[in-house]
Design a protein around this nucleic acid. Structure first.
Lengths: 193, 193
DNA sequence: GTCTATACGAAGATAGAC
DNA sequence: GTCTATCTTCGTATAGAC
């Protein structure tokens, strides 16, 4: 939990946690306050935009963390990006007792009710796809196939995170990791589609 | 939309639509009534359990539809189940202008707030995995590898549905379909892990 | 089976004191 | 920066008439 830091930081961390656990609809001001035990009177001082601003900043903060992992590890190639992404999710799932998932996916499927941050979610996911695809191109894949493979990687990992939550196990991510390793190994044998 | 049928059926169809578009938190009684233009006074007559019952029955109805598609098509082998699943989602996404996703996933990641139908979501997804894995075993895969491949299929398809919603395009599902075809083709060359 | 009215609670947001 | 009301909106649920 967000123990240290300023009141504002604590609220934001609480918002990130709630976004991962319950989706945007679960990021209520009351829930943030109850979780972080920060003063109610400070909410609109730090977040003049209210609840909507908290959700938006929580999405930015948690989405950037994932983007950073992909960008850094992708410098060592697509296999590295894939491995680090899997490792990140396994760690986060276990640390949160399988109660936390991907905040960007949660926003993406939330629908247009209340405030709508889906455009940002789309941009963030687009960034992941671009980074992974670029990395695949550098290993010799055609741009078209790189894009296709990047889509498979992101889709299967995000889907596996959902299955990990429901089964309360990291097995789905391990299964996906095992199968997609074959696919990466095939890359040089089947470069163009 | 649920034009015909009894009041109860109309309410249920509205609940299914809302569950797919906004998740369980979006299935409010007000939203169901506004969408189906059914009488408010009939809600607790048809659903004594109130909102929670509507969400539960909407999950059963929409989850069963997907289970049925997998079960029927899996009789012709895993490739058929996979193809029909992809086709189902592409059709549903297009028909709903990419505003609707998987109701079971929506429940699975909703968290423990309010009513909790996650156990049922887990059972439903488990059924999909079992059906697909059985089908793979019948084509010669070992039980262990069948389970692993089934997990990859469900994970990547569900993840792709999320990406389809954000990009408002069926391309992610097509990408996954294209890549996983290679994997099915490899099955006979790499039967045991 | 359906209607209106209403009680009740949760949550977002604002105002003004400190 | 933080506190204590308070207002308002929304959503669930119930009661009783028709």
């Amino acid at each position: 939990m967000g123990a240290g830091g300023t009141t504002r930081q604590k609220m934001l961390v609480g918002g990130v946690e709630l976004l991962r656990e319950r989706g945007p609809a679960g990021v209520t001001i009351d829930a943030v306050l109850a979780r972080t035990r920060t003063p109610r009177g400070s909410v609109y001082h730090h977040f003049p935009g209210g609840r909507q601003q908290i959700v938006g900043e929580a999405l930015e903060m948690s989405g950037s963390a994932i983007s950073a992992i992909i960008q850094e590890s992708a410098q060592d190639g697509p296999a590295s990006a894939f491995a680090h992404l899997i490792a990140f999710w396994k760690k986060l799932l276990r640390e949160n007792d399988f109660e936390a998932g991907c905040p960007v996916v949660a926003v993406a499927i939330a629908g247009s009710a209340q405030d709508d941050h889906r455009d940002r979610a789309r941009e963030i996911i687009g960034g992941w796809l671009g980074t992974i695809a670029d990395s695949l191109v550098r290993t010799g894949a055609t741009p078209a196939r790189a894009r296709t493979l990047a889509t498979l990687v992101v889709s299967s990992v995000e889907g596996a995170v959902v299955l990990c939550r429901t089964t309360r196990s990291t097995a789905p991510l391990d299964d996906v990791a095992g199968e997609l390793r074959h696919l990466f190994a095939d890359l040089d044998r089947r470069p163009a589609e």
